[in-house]
Design a protein around this nucleic acid. Structure first.
Length: 429
RNA sequence: UCCACAGUAGCUCAGUGGUAGAGCCCUCGGCUGUUAACCGAGUUGUCGCAGGUUCGAAUCCUGCCUGUGGAGCCA
């Protein structure tokens, strides 16, 4: 492979040529420092006036920010460099001279940066976050492959709402109404009965007018579903999975974490098993803390955050009341008022990163729940079929990719964890 | 949908009733180890929009628009 900034350490004392952009530059009368980036990393090119011809030095001094060029020079190990290496430049070939690059070295506001998201992703901080995104995705495939899961892709265009509660994006499917998927779960249940252990990874859409640092209109979800797996084992797989991606990020993204100044002790803490609290105990604890909640209420964001702050690890809140959870969740055999479900709440206020449950295996119970929700059993006929032909206990969960990345990378807002976020009033670029 | 805050140069902001400002960016000059480099000079305005109060409004009032943070909803 030809040299890149990320592999430059293999070329110490050799002359290399790399394609790069000018991230920034500083110069004095007889020396110029080019902050170079090539998409794989950042390195400083040092241009010494006495060591190159006149035109090369003048060019180096006059290159505007984000100009593109081929840089030829000798790789030097240097303790003064953040990455440990520098390039002593011997020649430059300018490919494109940029003009008035909008993102200057000073501060910018959110709206301006979001309007220039196509350029913003070049900046070190954004580059680091998206590097961690890649690692989470890579580790996800690796984990589920190792654990014997098959990746199955549910459809994105659907004819009906799986849960009927959240707002869906409406579109046309020739002469029919169609909606963009808000979850592939029901299809993944079908897949689990065909492949045993399956996972999906794809975009999902919520037409909610949410305006918080935890919400995107379009976001990516990982939805595993497992046949012959009950509530307890479901939680264990979630713990192992989350532990695995945290360890992978720690091991494989040290530079990105350093660039983000992430407190890595917080990530080292993410080790299975995770603490658990039942909904009922959580309500009692919240009441002690002075929260105005009664049994049967769903928790709001402040309640979730308070519970999460009580632990140094992510925490499972289990056994929610049946009435505030979707129709497909299996009732607890020991208490018919609650279901075998769990939400995983991340520490540091990042909120719910996983929602999961054991699914109802009994056809008549599922049919009764559909009716209670006012959902037509015709639209769900195929879903009921799964309870007619070899129904088994099965469980699954959904992990929100962007919230997980925000948490692991220590990013305040999920909009920076996806290359081109879709937010309320934000469809450009 | 609701609550709070904000909108002044390309960008980030100061200016709270009396002549429109600074830094960055850009241009020119200086500087051999800079790290958001630094020093000097120069260019840059529909003060979000509409109406009102006032001798006089970027500044006070009303409405609207846009953005940011949060709530609800959820991952």
């Amino acid at each position: 492979m030809k040299p890149t900034i990320s592999t430059i350490g293999r070329f110490v004392d050799q002359e290399v040529t790399i394609g790069a952009w000018i991230a920034n530059k500083r110069s004095s009368g007889k020396i110029a420092f080019l902050q170079l980036r090539d998409g794989t990393g950042f390195i400083q090119g040092v241009v010494v006036k006495s060591a190159v011809d006149e035109s090369t030095f003048e060019q180096a001094k006059s290159l505007p920010q984000e100009s593109a060029l081929y840089v030829t020079g000798t790789v030097q190990a240097d303790d003064r460099a953040p990455s440990g290496y520098e390039i002593t430049v011997t020649g430059l070939k300018v490919l494109h001279k940029a003009k008035d690059y909008p993102i200057t070295p000073k501060e910018h506001g959110t709206e301006f940066l979001m309007d220039h998201r196509h350029l913003w992703i070049r900046q070190p901080r954004q580059h680091a976050i998206l590097t961690i995104r890649h690692e989470v995705i890579r580790a996800t495939y690796e984990f589920f492959h190792q654990e014997g899961f098959t990746k199955v892709d549910p459809p994105i265009l659907t004819g009906s709402s799986p849960e009927g509660t959240t707002n869906l994006f409406h579109t046309q499917y020739f002469d029919e109404d169609a909606y963009l998927s808000q979850s592939g779960q029901l299809y993944m249940e079908a897949a689990a009965l065909a492949f045993n252990r399956v996972f999906s990874f794809g975009p999902t859409f919520r037409a909610e007018k949410s305006k918080t640092r935890r919400h995107l209109i379009e976001f990516w979800m990982i939805e595993p579903e497992m046949a012959f797996v009950e509530h307890e084992e479901n939680l264990q797989i979630q713990e192992q999975y989350v532990t695995y991606i945290a360890e992978s990020v720690l091991r494989n993204c040290p530079q990105a974490l350093a660039a983000l100044e992430r407190d890595t002790s917080k990530l080292e803490n993410i080790q299975a098993p995770f603490p658990r609290i039942t909904y009922t105990d959580a309500v009692a604890w919240l009441q002690e803390q002075g929260f105005d909640v009664t049994w049967g209420d769903d928790f709001g964001s402040p309640e979730e955050t308070a519970i999460a702050e009580h632990y140094s690890k992510p925490v499972f809140i289990t056994h929610y009341p049946k009435a505030i959870k979707p129709f497909y969740m299996e009732p607890d055999p020991e208490n018919d008022e609650v279901v075998l479900c769990a939400d995983l709440i991340a520490p540091e206020g990042y909120g719910e990163v996983i929602g999961g449950s054991q699914r109802i295996a009994d056809e008549s119970l599922l049919e009764a729940n559909l009716e209670k929700e006012g959902l037509s059993s015709e639209a769900y006929a195929w879903y009921l079929d799964l309870r007619r032909y070899g129904s088994v206990p099965h469980s699954g969960f959904g992990l929100g990719l962007e919230r997980t990345i925000a948490w692991l990378s220590g990013t305040e807002h999920v909009r920076e964890t996806i290359p081109f976020p879709r937010l309320l009033n934000r469809l450009y670029p």
